[in-house]
Amino acid sequence: DDLRWKMPVAFATNLPGLGSPAAWVADNLTTASNGSIRVRVYEPGELVPPFDILQSVSDGKVSAGYTWIGYDQGKVPAVPLFAAVPFGMKPWAYIGWYYYGGGHDMLQQVYANKGFNVHAQLCGIIGPETAGWYANKIETLEDYDGMKIRFAGLGGKVLERLGASVTMIPGGELYQALEKGTIDATEFSMPAIDQILGFNQVVKYNLFPGWHQQFTAQYLLINKDEWDDASESQQALVEASCTAATTLGLAEGEYRNGAVLAGFQDEGVQADQIPREVLLELKAVTEEVLEEESERDADFKRVYDSQQEFMETYKVWDSRAYLPSDL
């Protein structure tokens, strides 16, 4: 049968890499299927509030949704591992693990174990986020102590351990909060997106590397019954479109970020590296936090162990095969 999918998205489709793949997938599915799959995109909040996309897809209220699944970590503790992991894999390593290391099947299992009736398909990925925008330089670990910072996800938990005052001010208020010093720092996404939010106009320290989010992955969630009803050719087309969107999303971010970052520097933004000792310390705390999460949730542990195991074998390749960036 012909499929008609209403697809709410969690990010505006004008955000490069983050939201743009959703619009591309919707268009491409209609074109490539010759109209047998038609997808209508609903911008954030038009149909479903972004945080409820999983629920409404699972309940069959909408057929599909496009989101950063990390938003659902309150319901499915293991999903952050598929969305963004502090000190996690580089994007191409992540898709290696996802496509060939059993990640895709594990994700289906993780949802099913919590009673969610969805098929999830990796459908977009971007490279590292920046470690945030800061009013002041970060030189030692103590600089995090007492800092008022907006920081999402597991990374936020890490910073909280280091004495930071972590808040989750809504995206819309970030710019002002930062400008006015209501917060001292914030992270949001990669340079091409942060630019749209205008943080570079407000504070001058943009820190790297994005230790808390080396990759950020978006997924197409499809109601499981709807997915099972789709013909094999329709399913194949969805899989192929999403794989293509993943490549295109990554390409878009990689293509733009360099120029944007260079532009920031022309405006006097300092793109500083977080000192190595601080990174080591952050890594140690991150491991503590992730271990704790592992103890709390069996799915988390299973996925985390699988990722750790892959990263261990990947390490030798990663450290030897690529040219150093200063060459």
Binding site: G74, K114, G156
Partner: peptide, 10 residues
């Protein structure tokens, strides 16, 4: 599902 806040400290 024992839903909690999506913020780890929530």
């Amino acid at each position: 599902v024992g839903e909690t806040s999506q913020a780890p400290a929530g």
